[in-house]
């Protein structure tokens, strides 16, 4: 298996406040990696530094062996990204946004096919603004998949989706994973993490408090289910963890 994402000894602080400290992670091809933690634990900072939209203070980062700053054009032919914040023009329609995204890549997927797969093809002529929260979230996943990426970054994957829609999205992503797609995601839903992720990393105040599989996370905690274990790892009280 090839290593797709490699992060070594990465740190980043904002004006004296440490956002992420000494993070190491490695994501193999065809696996799903989940970066977890409370709001403000350093998830978005990590994603942004891996993608090169922010500059790390120290550490080395590479995606498919490429540096996201120096080889930006080449690298992003093969990387799909869905950011947490919405980013689209005021009056743009779904099909226009997809069409432009498609035009940016040398070998893009047919967006109509993807819209159909995600069940929002009848919304192609609507403006993005008119979509419901869930439909918009699906659209942003579609946009991230348009480049036919080798690796996709999904920040807050299914926020705003209802239970049924989340299952549909999981299924599509699992199928893509079978075909060799590498997925890097953040999520606040532990059922989703359990269903999708091969490896997880739990951050707490910028530091890694757990790194391994979901099963290992449960086993090395005093709890039986993953959500309890997660809360235990990401809990404020550090002293408690050290006693176990």
């Amino acid at each position: 298996m090839n290593e797709i994402i490699s992060v070594k000894q990465f740190s980043k602080s904002y004006g004296g406040l440490t956002a992420v400290q000494d993070l190491d992670l490695s994501v193999m091809q065809g696996t799903v990696f989940g970066l977890l933690g409370e709001n403000g634990a350093g998830k978005s900072t990590t994603i942004e530094c891996i993608l090169g939209t922010r500059i790390p203070d120290t550490g080395t980062i590479s995606i498919m062996g490429m540096n996201p700053f120096q080889q930006r054009k080449q690298l992003f032919e093969n990387v799909g990204v869905q950011f947490q914040e919405a980013n689209y023009q005021d009056k743009v329609t779904v099909s226009e946004l997809c069409e432009v995204t498609q035009s940016l890549y040398k070998k893009a997927a047919d967006y109509r096919e993807l819209l159909k797969q995600f069940g929002i093809s009848e919304k192609a002529k609507s403006t993005v603004k008119e979509l419901s929260g869930g439909q918009r979230q699906k659209l942003f996943i579609v946009l991230a998949l348009i480049p036919q990426p080798k690796v996709v970054f999904l920040d807050e994957l299914t926020t705003g989706l209802d239970a049924k829609a989340r299952r549909e999205v999981w299924k599509i992503l699992s199928n893509l994973k079978e075909k060799g797609l590498t997925i890097f995601l953040t999520s606040h839903f532990m059922d989703e993490v359990e269903a999708l992720c091969d490896t997880i990393c739990i951050l707490k105040k910028g530091k890694t408090v757990f790194y391994g599989t979901v099963k290992e996370a449960v086993e090395s905690s005093p709890y039986k289910n993953f959500e309890d274990a997660y809360l235990w790892y990401s809990d404020e009280e550090t002293s408690e963890n050290e006693n176990v």
Partner: peptide, 12 residues
Amino acid sequence: RKILKHFKVTPV
């Protein structure tokens, strides 16, 4: 609107 930020993670 972070549209440019999104363009930054594409080849454009």
